[in-house]
Design a protein around this nucleic acid. Structure first.
Length: 768
DNA sequence: CCGTCGAGGCCCGAC
DNA sequence: GCCTCGACGG
């Protein structure tokens, strides 16, 4: 074996080096949070390519997000040179699944009945389809919730059960309902020439079953396979990986059972716990040294996770400094909580010159983000929300994508209906007209979209029964525009096609330039256009297909753009997996939220649910490098009603000596003591020590070092200046208070009243 | 065909 | 409390 380049091993500890160098045979790396897992993965890939001469295309690396895949590839190329990793198979399970299917259009069509222009249905599409399926089998969507059907169907698919297999497992009436809906759902998917997310994993396995030679080809291709976040793989993913690794058996799995947080989507922790049974010759490597967080944070995390029974015994340690105390704080309600977070962030930015992008605010449920966002919106602090209403879920963006999908895959009736509903071109076509075209199309053995296209020429000339009057000309227009755009697709770039689409569909014209809301929506449509530019280099015909695949696989975490403006990150605990921030706030550390109420309700039947919640908290805590804030409230509005709350039982698991508590004046120390009694009486709670009942005023004495993005020196303002603020618009500075190295400005905005802003932070343009 | 209004569900998490 | 969906009237 050639000597590894010193640089590839430089700075790695013994265990990390072993993980990089043990290239032959199965290896399981149990990697605690912050233990340099990503470094190991990237250095290992670099080592394989550079030192062992492995071709990049012979390596398959599975990551948890597309973003992680991109970053990992970049880091590898940084180690061994730009372009040196090109050809590397790296991506999420889903993107690799779609790649298998796209690479073999012939066999996929032949064996799976999926035509080459198949589309991927997202959450909303799946929901609509599930609802159709419920109705189609004669049930009421109000009684048989499509969402529940979907989650059952998804669970079945994750276990590799097709409708026929599922029927055999039926035990009660409810299962029978699911079985019927599942069968119909699959029928509708096939009819639409579409597949859902789960199918992206299931279909490749079916493909390999049907065409063993194909599997052998991939087995021969992948000399080395690396899988990140192995603890969160489900059965289908497990089967796929084991099948692919069967020939060379160079499977490198990295994971952490303590960070398993996806049992609800059928992640099976047994995949990682049973690795040794699957591969008795496996090398086990543990990465237990945390390089990310201060000792206090590591200790808090370690003590918390020790309370779980479902785990591999392991100690997380660190050589880092003690750092600051973990700050635990009670607020009276969610508004005060949000205000505290914003105020504290402002203070950190102001006094300690922390950049917003060093800060994350985390929560258990997306619903919590709303109040937080309100507070941020009122402040001058830049923020972004990961998840929530995603860009691609916005109505206007979905409208355009739906029409693009119709052009690409005429069988996608869901998208056709959306187009008719939301595009001006669909105006005048009601359910009646659609039904008629649908029947006509069925008679003529074609799709409804093709029906509109085929009928258009004759409709232009005369009433073609059954389409008459208003619906006749409307249907004619729709059919001919679709036909025109499809012709254009063959010769134009995607952006040109986009321009033609928003023009001829009348979509662009439907936005009112006087309406702020419309203009906001139109700007989103234009942002979509910017997206398309990346695909203009591809040959027409191929660009649209590639774009549509990609757009369906964008995850929340992927949409976190770095660079440009520094922003505070608002993110769910789930989405925060794999990320790190110097400063982390975890909000809503309460019974009902963390652990979430559903886990509490099921506690007696399924104690594992509570353990998963604890792991989720653990994931959150271990995202923090320097500073960790935990907040909970005395009461919170839920479903529009105020309810008083109890602090999370998990708080009692934290080591007293690393946590500093701050009560609010309203609740005070007394109530905190009461609450601590409530904790100790809670089932399943082991207290590690009483939390100090005293609440001293908070003034942590610390500073984040090495701040790369420290605010630039701010311009000087003077009273009387007319200014412009990106959010609040025009205003006048009425008062200025000089601070040590900043100015506090009082500004009267024309529209938004009086605000107090900091000169260094507010992005003001001086008008006069 | 389009807008308005009330009822009811919703909020556990995501590719 | 907000959003979505279906019923109803213009």
């Amino acid at each position: 074996m050639p000597n590894p380049t010193a640089s590839l091993l430089h700075g790695l500890n013994d265990a990390q080096q072993q993980a990089v160098l043990t290239t032959q045979g199965p290896v399981l790396v149990v990697a605690g949070p912050g233990s340099g897992k990503t470094r190991v993965l990237t250095h290992r890939i670099a080592h394989l390519i550079q030192d062992l001469g492995v071709m990049p295309e012979n390596i398959l690396a599975v990551t948890f997000t597309n973003k992680a895949a991109g970053e990992m590839k970049q880091r590898v190329e940084k180690l061994i040179g730009a372009g040196a990793a090109s050809g590397l198979w790296i991506g999420t399970f889903h993107s690799i699944g779609v790649r298998f299917l796209r690479q073999n259009p012939g066999i996929v069509a032949d064996r799976l009945g999926l035509l080459p222009n198949f589309v991927i249905y997202d959450d909303a599409d799946q929901m609509a389809l599930a609802k159709q399926a419920v109705v189609a089998v004669g049930l009421d969507p109000k009684q048989v919730a499509p969402r529940r059907m979907l989650s059952r169907i998804s669970a079945a698919k994750s276990e590799m059960l097709d409708p026929d297999d599922f029927v055999k497992t039926v035990e009660k009436y409810d299962d029978e309902v699911v079985a019927r809906v599942y069968r119909e759902y699959q029928r509708l998917l096939k009819k639409a020439n579409a597949i859902d997310f789960d199918d992206l994993l299931v279909m490749p396995i079916r493909l390999f079953d049907a065409a063993p030679a194909l599997l052998e080809r991939y087995q021969a291709l992948f000399h080395y396979i690396l899988v990140d976040e192995y603890q969160d793989t489900n059965r289908v993913q497990y089967i796929l990986v084991s099948a692919l690794a069967d020939r060379y058996r160079n499977l490198f799995a990295v994971g952490d059972p303590d960070q398993s947080i996806y049992a609800w989507r059928q992640a099976d922790i047994r995949n990682i716990l049973g690795f040794n049974q699957d591969y008795p010759d496996a090398t086990l490597i543990k990465l237990e040294t945390n390089y990310r967080s201060t000792r206090r944070i590591v200790e808090a995390a370690d003590r918390l996770i020790r309370e779980n029974s479902q785990r591999i015994e392991r100690t997380l340690r660190t050589d880092n400094d003690d750092g600051e105390m973990v700050s635990l704080r009670e607020l009276s309600d969610e508004r005060h909580e949000a205000r505290f977070v914003v105020d504290e962030i402002r203070r950190l930015m102001n006094i300690h010159h922390v950049s917003p992008n060093q800060i994350a605010v985390m929560y258990r449920t997306t619903a919590q983000s709303r109040v937080l966002e309100e507070s941020f919106r009122m402040s001058e602090i830049n923020y972004r929300i990961v998840g929530g209403l995603r860009f691609y879920e916005r109505r206007e963006v979905k409208d355009v994508i739906a029409m693009l999908r119709v052009l690409h895959n005429p069988a996608d009736e869901l998208s056709l209906l959306r187009t008719i509903e939301n595009m001006p071109i669909g105006r005048g076509i009601g359910p009646k007209a659609i039904d008629q075209v649908r029947s006509w199309s069925a008679l003529n053995q074609t799709t409804t979209t093709e029906g509109f296209v085929a009928l258009a020429p004759s409709l232009a000339l005369h009433d073609s029964p059954p389409l008459t009057g208003a619906s006749r000309s409307a249907a004619q227009k729709l059919g001919s525009v679709i036909a025109q755009l499809r012709e254009l697709e063959k010769e134009l770039t995607l952006t040109q096609l986009f321009d033609a689409l928003v023009d001829r569909s009348g979509y662009q014209g439907s936005f009112n330039h006087e309406s702020e809301e419309d203009m906001e929506r139109w700007s989103n449509v234009l942002e979509l256009r910017t997206d398309l530019e990346d695909f203009d280099a591809l040959p027409p015909g191929e660009a649209l297909a590639t774009y549509l695949d990609q757009v369906q696989l964008v995850s929340d975490a992927d949409t976190m753009k770095d660079g440009s403006v520094p922003q505070v990150t608002l993110i769910t605990l789930h989405s925060a997996k794999g990320l790190e921030f110097p400063i982390v706030f975890i909000t809503g550390v309460e019974e009902g939220l963390l652990p979430v109420s559903r886990a509490i309700e099921n506690e007696a039947v399924d104690p594992n649910a509570i353990e998963e919640e604890r792991r989720l908290f653990y994931v959150g805590i271990t995202r923090a490098e320097k500073l960790l804030y935990l907040t909970y409230t005395a009461g919170r509005t839920r479903y529009g009603r105020y309810e008083s709350t109890i602090p999370s039982r998990f708080l009692a698991n934290l080591p007293v000596e690393s946590v500093k508590t701050h009560g609010t004046r309203a609740s005070g120390a007394g109530s905190l003591a009461q609450r601590s009694r409530a904790w100790s009486s809670m089932p399943g709670t082991k207290r590690t020590g009483p939390l100090p009942a005293s609440a001293r005023p908070a003034e942590p004495d610390w500073a984040v070092r090495n701040v790369p993005d420290a605010a630039p020196p701010s311009p000087t303002y003077a009273a009387g200046m007319q200014i412009f603020h990106p959010k609040f618009g025009e205003g006048q500075i009425t008062e200025i208070a000089e601070r040590r190295d900043d100015q506090e400005l009082v500004i009267e905005f024309k529209r938004h009243g009086t605000k107090r802003l900091l000169g260094s932070l507010a992005k003001l343009d001086v008008i006069s």
